[in-house]
Design a protein around this nucleic acid. Structure first.
Length: 98
DNA sequence: GAAGTGACAAGGT
DNA sequence: CACCTTGCCACTT
């Protein structure tokens, strides 16, 4: 498979915006392989803003180690993305529109 | 090669 | 809004 497409797209997410896995999957014409976008992120090259990719609920998905999702939130907040009291992003305002 | 797993999504309740 | 169920498919046992 070619995860390059995914990385290209993620790289295009502007600062202060976020995208969902499904959104990336659709843009990459991966159909319903949203799940694998996450897998692609697992190999995330350093120049990919992986923190701007979250799940469809606006929540930060966590991997095995818990410290990383803290970092992800900090990075996003540093870019101006606001979280509500439930640690969720208002996708209406912050989702990346192509 | 079968079964289990996962940084998910959409639709129903 | 929250929770549950189902579909998905590459990757790992």
């Amino acid at each position: 498979m070619d995860y390059k497409i995914i990385y290209e797209l993620v790289r295009q997410i502007p600062r202060g915006r976020v995208a969902t896995y499904g959104q990336i999957a659709r843009l990459a014409r991966w159909g319903r392989r949203a799940r694998h976008v996450g897998w692609a992120m697992h190999a995330c090259p350093d120049d990919v803003p992986w923190h701007r990719v979250i799940n469809s609920k606006g929540e930060i998905s966590r991997r095995a180690s818990s410290d990383h999702h803290e970092l992800q939130r900090l990075l996003l907040e540093a870019e101006g993305v606001r979280f509500d009291h439930r640690s969720r992003v208002d996708l209406e305002r912050f989702s990346w529109e192509r």
